[in-house]
Amino acid sequence: MSVKECKAESIISLRNVSKFFQGKTVIDDVNLDIYCGETFVIMGCSGSGKSTLLRLMTGAIRPDKGSVALKGRDIAKISSEELDEVRKTFGMTFQYSALLDSLNVEENIALPLREHTQLAEEIIKIIIKMKLSLVGLRGYEEYYPSQISGGMRKRVGLARAIALDPEIVFYDEPTSGLDPVVGGVIDKLIKDLSVKLMITSVVVTHDMHSVFEIADRISMIHKGKVVEVGTPEDIRNSKNEYIRQFINGSPSGPIDFFREDIGMEDVLDL
């Protein structure tokens, strides 16, 4: 299990990070500090840049400007081999679980253990049972992804993410596509793992119920910029008009869903 000593220090640190895709700024001079053991939620609309931010933090893509440090190491500057080593210290869950359909639950969770360790098969099987027990799925080893519900698949994805006892777990839209009750189960699981195992959790979501349920701190992203960072209480009471619109789910406000910067000339390529 994790439960390592957790000091009040920044475990993930972004400094002046920018990312451009095809000449367009998708992440714009972002500065963020995420502290050991906290559950940090990144919220924002579709296309706000929150998933790009997550990909930058996991080293899936590198910033065009600035630095992304995990436990003090700038992952934008290290070699692929070193990045592989850093990746062993964090786990990741995906929006659509990303389980391999041809493998059963046990084999899916075993993947990182077989790939990254020299552990005996007997030990791997015991670890899998422990992880399944932690996510409330003991006895599901032989099931295939197609034989279990969406919520269970998400929990298997989580069991796989924590197989190597990571210090950080990144969650990409952990409750999307789930009914509110199952979403609540996933929220509780994220919070439990964070509190009991002292795992640092970084959650990307636009599920407002989930945000206030699990977050120690919240960051609102809009057009690649950090609008505000604060506790759930700070965000609830924020006067920021972007945050007010997002929380209330209002179609009118400063967040423009109909891109005013694109005129008909652009659409018709005139």
């Binding site: 299990m1 390592k4 360790t117 030990i123 015991i126 422990m130």
Partner: peptide, 13 residues
């Protein structure tokens, strides 16, 4: 000072 899942699994075995 610390034991991880592989250590716990070894004890269980």
């Amino acid at each position: 000072s610390y034991i991880d899942s592989s250590g716990l699994a070894t004890l269980i075995e």
